[in-house]
Design a protein around this nucleic acid. Structure first.
Lengths: 240, 240
DNA sequence: CGTCGCGTTGACGTAGCTCAACCTACGTGG
DNA sequence: CCACGTAGGTTGAGCTACGTCAACGCGACG
């Protein structure tokens, strides 16, 4: 970023370092991990928090890799992937902006999945030691951490109950409703068919066919930017 | 239990109260939530921890119910169930002895699933206030709580990657290996076909047929006590 | 221009669902 | 004691939703 300021990116292959984080003026401060903390506490300890950019399809870390940092998604979309020995690829869950990734290293030594960017993604890299230090003096962080863990758990349960259950039509409909961006659920994130299939436990062809059908019915329009949906219609399909 | 000692079980319908917990001498103390705490800290604050017994098929709490306690499984097996509006029943995960149930009330007000006993189960009921009080003065509990949360998350991920993916044969094989009791994975918990189906996202008939086939192959014996399996053979089936 | 990545569509096979009959073990009430 | 109902499991026959394989389309890019 600045001349003479060396990027400390030895720890991460694909991401590019774009500076130190200014957590106090983060544009999504209200939803971030440290949102409960006071201004001055932030200023003191968040110096070693890096700001990263991860290009679509590049990976942040791999399953089984040793790690000493958690990440928060500032912008974009990240997928957690599990590759089975037989080659099966299953997306475990998607992380939207505000989500925390890799919390397992707070408890374990290694990451449990492969984290890959679906779209171009901005992240904060928070070293584990920053969290453990802050944790010692600030009880509010415990609550924040617990909340994040519960969020991940809720996401996982959603994948089980909504995205791995029922007909292909129901799953795709639920998927589209879940990856909605705005509160009215009219525009959604864009994912490749292959990713959708890996998330829903279906094949690319089946997903493609269901998408085609939804489009024929006018429930879905795939423009240049992002897919737009009719949430009411899809809600009906989702419940059967 | 003792005459004149009234059971404080107004909060729970199906479980029966069987006394206060003696956490210091708990037979599974090493694996329990408070295993990191010192003896004297336990003695002080764990008075309001109840010891419960839950008969097979009765439920501990329901989805959406407001709650103010988490539970740990001492003996037996508990299922977390999600009932979809259309009647679909999906088991989200199974809790073996040592697991913590209902941690969402540490962060939220209500439970996120229905918790039901698969077999006769012994539980400890730990009020949320006990945890929040202990948390204030004992940092070791944070670690313990995080570890439990991560355990739940790992369990959830297991359901996604192992039990909701692949052929019916692979799923059933992986299921049998996962519900093994002993380290050699030769004997497993017993579940009704209906529960297995709800956990694997299959139908009772399919599960029954796969079981029959495994038995014909000699990979599985269902005795009076608990099913016994050939882990090597099932491992082979599990990976495809 | 050819290649590559991604998506679509068709033809066909099959794994798993559905519906139905039936069986055994077990409990309950006359 | 038997008669009956019920809960859980098994098995078969047929259907269909989804997977598989293959061809093709189309834009991006070198």
């Amino acid at each position: 970023m600045l001349a003479g300021m060396k990027s400390p990116m030895s720890y991460c292959t694909d991401a590019t370092w774009v500076g130190r984080s200014d957590c106090q003026h983060c544009d999504i401060r209200g939803t971030m991990l440290f949102s409960e903390l006071q201004e001055r506490e932030l200023g003191d300890l968040l110096r070693p928090v890096d700001n990263l950019r991860l290009a679509a399809k590049s990976s942040l870390y791999h399953e089984g890799e040793v790690g000493d940092a958690v990440f928060t998604v500032r912008k974009g979309l990240v997928r957690l992937v599990h590759y089975a020995p037989n080659g099966t690829r299953r997306i475990v869950r998607l992380l939207k902006s505000g989500s925390v990734i890799g919390m397992e290293v707070l408890v374990n030594t290694h990451y449990h999945h492969c984290a890959e960017a679906v779209s171009d993604t901005d992240l904060c890299r928070i070293p584990v030691e920053v969290i453990t230090q802050l944790e010692g003096r600030n009880p509010a962080l415990h609550t924040a951490l617990m909340r994040r863990w519960q969020n991940s758990l809720d996401d996982a349960d959603m994948v089980i109950t909504q995205l791995s259950t029922g007909s292909s039509h129901a799953r795709v409909a639920r998927f589209l409703l879940l990856v909605a961006i705005d509160p009215h659920r009219t525009e959604c994130h864009h994912l490749m068919r292959e990713d959708i299939a890996a998330l829903l436990g279906l094949t690319v062809e089946t997903v493609s066919r269901v998408f085609a059908e939804f489009k024929r019915n006018g429930w879905l329009v795939e423009g240049a930017d992002c897919p737009r949906i009719n949430p009411q219609a899809l809600e009906r399909v989702a419940t059967d």
